[in-house]
Design a protein around this nucleic acid. Structure first.
Lengths: 223, 223
DNA sequence: TCTATTATTTAGTCTAACCTAAATTATTGT
DNA sequence: ACAATAATTTAGGTTAGACTAAATAATAGA
């Protein structure tokens, strides 16, 4: 009998998943920063998660942490909740994409599987949330991500925005104002080698975007 | 700056409200039973609530507990969340009335005022939940309850069901099967003085109901 | 009125999850 | 290769909210 995961544990797993997506183990400090918690607290929790009845993480002192099978499943469950909720808040309740993150962060830990299933059905089983992030399927597999960062495009290339990897409401509102949202066609018209700015044409207007922005927008390049 | 109320405190306040609705102070033991907590734990919490910066309850040793203005507001806020959520789950997500209680109990503590406002709007600002319970208004006043218990009716009287005061899923399913739901017209055709059974005609069929049931159904008597 | 029973409170523990300060291990630049 | 710096862990402490066992107060029956 495997006891239920606390809200706090679910948060740790979710963030470990996100930090290890590109296959690097997650560091104590990075986790601490994400969770708004002291590094020492993270160490303590990681030891606990590694010692759990079915271990949830693999953790060796000073070597970072990765998820086990069990930890991965739990993480994907939370992420599925989060992203379905964000989608529901936008599509069914009229939230804007910059308003949903906090709400989903609180709701993700308390909804039942019943609730999850009902909103998934109501939404038509979407596989992306309002930011374009992939939603793990009901059987907890994460679809492969085919996107490339906008920052890697060069003049002459055009592409379709797939997702925007940001939660900051101000940034999200700004991008929405510019029309930089999932599904939109864009074209790169200039690149500045020194500051890495890209000039991007969208909705018949051009905008100069810095690295801070272009690394958060992920696209599918047109062939 | 009044710090936010924990989930646990919200639960205490909600149950104190319900126990004191008929103006008796709530006892430690009754609260403990409702909260599934040891009586000693209740004593501890009540002392804390009474000592809070704006006191949330009035509590004197061995004399039970009642809510202060501040405690009442907090309780009504939680109850409004709960009942709006139950209504939303049924009306918007297709839950049945026996499935909503648990879900609402978890969600009621985490939704934002934004969320509350949006579902209230989506529902057309209802003032009763699926069980017929009154929903506190947005400004946190509880509408007056005009209902009388079915148990007080006698043969010849007819009435409309206003609310059903129960959470037990089995009972709720049973009542639904019989057609005993809010809005329905019923007529009392017999009364047994000894076991207090009532024979009630609903949907052209008669059913004999015991006290356990008739004290949980509240009606408006036809004149 | 007094005792037996029941209700309530006190006292002392426990656990989860956080914290700070101090100690230790890794890493990096020279 | 080694000191300086950065990252991490250990040690010890705090808080919220629960628990059990023991003590006390209230109530009810004879």
């Amino acid at each position: 009998m495997t006891e239920p995961l606390t809200q706090s544990i679910q948060d740790y797993l979710k963030h470990i998943y996100e930090l290890t997506e590109r296959s690097q183990p997650a560091s104590t400090t990075d986790l601490a920063a994400r969770l708004n918690v002291a590094p020492a607290s993270v160490t303590g929790m990681l030891q606990k998660l590694a010692a759990a009845k079915p271990p949830l993480v693999i953790y060796k002192k000073h070597q970072g942490v990765t998820l086990t099978k069990a930890g991965l499943r739990a993480a994907l469950e939370v992420i599925r909740h989060h992203r379905l909720l964000e989608t529901y808040l936008v599509n069914a309740l009229g939230y804007t994409w910059d308003e949903v993150h906090e709400e989903a962060c609180r709701l993700e830990h308390v909804i039942s599987e019943e609730f999850e299933a009902r909103i998934a059905t109501a939404l038509g089983h979407p596989n992306r949330d309002p930011h374009g992030e992939l939603i793990p399927s009901a059987d907890l597999t994460m679809p492969a991500d085919q996107s490339t960062p906008l920052s890697s495009l060069r003049p002459g290339q055009s592409a379709t925005i797939l997702r925007v990897d940001a939660q900051d409401p101000n940034l999200l509102r700004h991008l929405d104002d510019l029309g930089l949202t999932p599904g939109i066609e864009i074209e790169v018209s200039a690149y500045s080698e020194f500051d890495h700015n890209l000039t991007v044409r969208v909705r018949r207007k051009s905008h100069v975007l810095g690295l801070n922005t272009t690394t958060k927008i992920f696209v599918e390049v047109d062939k």
